[in-house]
């Protein structure tokens, strides 16, 4: 319970163990981008509304912009860089490509990870459940129809 000025975190990141020392006030998003070089996770609204900074913590989506890096200690974190396996896009990524479920691509890492989490907890979501789960991921190119078509193709 001792107070810490800096702390060493150990967690599983994209399937591999990682150790990184951080300050308690470091946000997970900054540690991922600036310390671990994983730039796929985006800062956008910075207030948990837009979903561009989505990562999965123990399989569920969180806003890394408003999560302390310390919260990852001992947990399992998945970022967009860990979704493809062996150089092959996974089925969610392929569905987004095949249905052109993106325009500028800035929201896409969050969309892919939110979709991955949705299918983890509910492998057969209906249209209303898809919209409900993805409601917090905002696309400012207004490309929702193609995104929804991509997700529906996975059900």
């Amino acid at each position: 319970m001792d107070a810490t000025e800096r702390m060493m975190l150990s967690f599983t990141l994209n399937g591999r163990p990682v150790e990184v020392d951080v300050e308690p006030s470091d946000l997970l998003l900054d540690v991922l981008r600036n310390r671990l070089g994983l730039k796929g996770t985006k800062r956008s609204c910075d207030v948990e509304v837009c979903g561009a900074c989505t990562v999965l913590m123990n399989g569920l989506p969180v806003s890394s912009c408003t999560t302390l890096a310390a919260d990852a200690d001992g947990q399992t974190v998945l970022t967009i860089e860990g979704v493809a396996q062996g150089g092959e896009l996974d089925r969610v990524q392929r569905a987004f490509v095949e249905h052109a479920g993106m325009q500028c691509g800035f929201c896409t890492p969050g969309m892919v990870l939110a979709t991955t989490a949705l299918l983890n907890v509910n492998p057969k979501p209906d249209n209303a459940e898809i919209r409900h789960f993805l409601r917090g991921n905002i696309c400012r190119c207004t490309g929702y129809i193609k995104i929804l078509e991509a997700v529906k193709s996975l059900v």
Partner: peptide, 12 residues
């Protein structure tokens, strides 16, 4: 509970 904010806020 299922309708609070968005899924990330509900998870955290």
């Amino acid at each position: 509970s299922d309708n609070i904010a968005n899924i990330r806020v509900r998870v955290s």
